[in-house]
Write a protein that binds this DNA or RNA. Structure first.
Lengths: 210, 210
DNA sequence: TTGTCAATTGTCAGTGGCTGTCACTAGCCT
DNA sequence: AGGCTAGTGACAGCCACTGACAATTGACAA
């Protein structure tokens, strides 16, 4: 790796960390891009050469997490019922996610930023839009697993919608609570998913759609 | 009603209609607030005295619809199972929604704007955030119907999350399709809800939570 | 009517996010 | 060593949005 490229990475990471630190302490709206650039001693223009916008810095870490979740779902054994696959994938991927995140920024910082995301209207909106895109991706994967056409059979999109809905609820509760540990999240998620599990058919194949 | 107040309403409606017309034809990002103000021949500052932001004009009509849905859910007989109440409330409220909308702007225009909302990232994000707020409201109503505490029992938030997830999927499909009629929407919604219905317990009370 | 008061509006100036342009500098490669 | 190019800073400009103040317009009483 070049000196040039190393320098670039260092600048990007510095910008990222400075931004997150400022968001977590001062708040998102209260932080200007100039503040971030100044904290790293680069021009505002340079900031925009590394990130498409202020928002992107806030979602840099979540993006990592999403990637891992998608991979985890893809890695699930094909025999597993869809909802089960989603559940296990999510629960299992968190450990690896945590590792990957820690390499970039302290998890503790990410946690604080996550709370900012949930409590800042503009960021929450962006978060939900990203979640919607993830849903679309997952629906595609589920459909493929089951050998279905996403646009012909409603079920892939529906399970994913149901599943994501529950995840959203737990995310919100978790970020609002005072135990921000991984275990708390896992606990909350299983509890909430268990409220739906018994109510959903275990296997589509034994119950063909009309 | 005063001349003053009548004039105000006229200005607001003119701004609203001009904005929606411009969004529908030119696109949201391509329309500046100055364009909207100019179309009505008022200053940009005046626009911001009627609407908190450009976004608000795009969601003026959807806000109406949300109000009606909430009322429709509130009006459901208490004996009805939660999911059933939500389903009927939504399906039944559309007629009244359509009437109320038509008094403000041509429905056809609203339909076109809705497509713009779904296809403009910034608007889609805002739409999802609003939907999340609606969910919270509905969860409260459901909890009250069932005599539960929203924060103690997960079920209200979960049904609403599941229900809303399905509605979102149908909204997207509907707005992407080429039949923008009410009947098409109703058809799509019932079809999709029927895919979940049999999979969810009919009544919580016969199946107490753990 | 007319004069006074209050609401509505326009103008102006300024902030913050974001983009295009251009010249310059620092690292790369031969 | 020196030309090439990626990365940067400086500057100008667009757009959404806000605050402050002055001008205008409708409301209402004398």
């Amino acid at each position: 790796m070049n000196l040039r490229e190393r320098k670039k990475l260092r600048t990007r990471d510095a910008l990222l960390r400075a931004a997150l630190e400022l968001f977590a302490t001062r708040g998102y709206e209260e932080t200007t891009v100039d503040d971030i650039a100044a904290a790293v001693d680069v021009s505002q223009r340079t900031f925009f050469r590394y990130f498409a916008g202020k928002e992107e810095t806030a979602f840099f870490v979540p993006r990592l997490a999403e990637t891992h979740v998608v991979e985890a779902v893809r890695a699930r054994p094909p025999g597993e019922p869809p909802l089960e696959a989603l559940r296990r994938a999510v629960l299992e991927s968190w450990d690896r996610i945590n590792e990957a995140v820690e390499e970039l920024v302290p998890i503790e910082l990410h946690m604080r930023v996550y709370r900012v995301i949930e409590s800042t209207p503009a960021l929450l909106a962006a978060h939900l839009r990203r979640a919607a895109e993830l849903e679309e991706q997952l629906a595609g994967i589920i459909a493929e697993r089951e050998g279905l056409d996403v646009d012909a059979d409603p079920r892939p999109r529906i399970v994913v919608a149901l599943f994501s809905g529950v995840i959203r609820v737990t995310e919100r509760l978790w970020s609002a609570g005072d135990d921000l540990s991984l275990d708390a999240m896992r606990q909350l998620t299983t509890t909430y998913l268990d409220q739906v599990g018994p109510a959903l058919a275990e296997n589509w194949r034994t119950e063909p759609s009309p």
